[in-house]
Amino acid sequence: MGAAQRRRKTDWGTAGFVVGLLAPGLLLYFFLVLWPMGQSFWVALHRWRGVSGRMTFVGLDNFAELLRDEKLRFALGHNLVFLVIVALTIIPLALFFANALAQRLRGVELFRALFLFPNVVSMVAVSTLWMFLYNPNWGLVNATLRALHLDALAVTWLADARTVLPAVALTYVWYVLGFYVLLLRAGIQGISADVNEAAIVDGATERQRFRFITLPLLNEILRLSVIYLVINSFNVFALVWIMAPPSGTGGATEVALTYLYQKGFVEQQFGYSTAIGAVNFVLVMGITLLLQRIWRVE
């Protein structure tokens, strides 16, 4: 620090300028993001029914009730099933495609652009498109299965409690796979060429290099990917709400956030609804911290 900067005299002109620059952003951020986020933990301690209803402090009653709430347990179970399907599909596929697209192959730019495209489409449009594709009578999925003489597999995807969750989860895979390919590809391209060349000189096959060089060096990005998948699987909403609202599937597609929406904005039980959000948040944080502990990254 120079002597000039250490001068005690405050430069009021600059201070005013900085405050002016910061004020609109800070005010909006504080009142519309931080304040409601913090307030949610307070609202969750109240019984509050109806917009004009009175807030009654009930302590941890909402949480005690949630512990006994079978519907919430089912909902979180569905989030977990969703996570398992999505993770088991995305991680291997993304690794494979990222490895392919990290190389300087012919046409690689086109593939990179195509793979990422679904990610910019609105979730509502993705949901609608896949509702059409899954339509039992005139959708492309069943038309393809029938053309392949697999008529037995041409089921009512979104109406059957056994198939609806995997069908929705695979739609999410379609939407998001390109993002994980991008993430992992950046990781692979960050691995120095020297390491790979040394391995080639030592006679390592492509498969060996992938197993013993790429995978270990990707460890951190893989963990990050899994953490994202956890966060997004427990926060899935629009996809389920539009493709297969729980009211139409006998609750087979109830997930944490559809339940939160139902309680808050349909039944107007604001305290209870907020408590669901808090439980979901704490659960996701817990899983994330656990993953960071048990999945070591050097």
Binding site: L22, G25, L26, Y29, F31, L32, V33, L34, W35, P36, M37, Q39, S40, V43, V51, I231, N235, F237, L257, L260, G264, F265, F270, S273, T274, G277, A278, N280, F281, V284
Partner: peptide, 26 residues
């Protein structure tokens, strides 16, 4: 500190705030 406060917002789930936000705007 302010920078960190802003950036940490990237990890908050919107749904945590949605009920208080609705009530606040209402």
């Amino acid at each position: 500190f302010l920078m960190n406060t802003f950036v940490s917002g990237m990890v908050f789930p919107i749904f945590l705030a949605v009920v208080p936000l609705f009530l606040l705007l209402n």
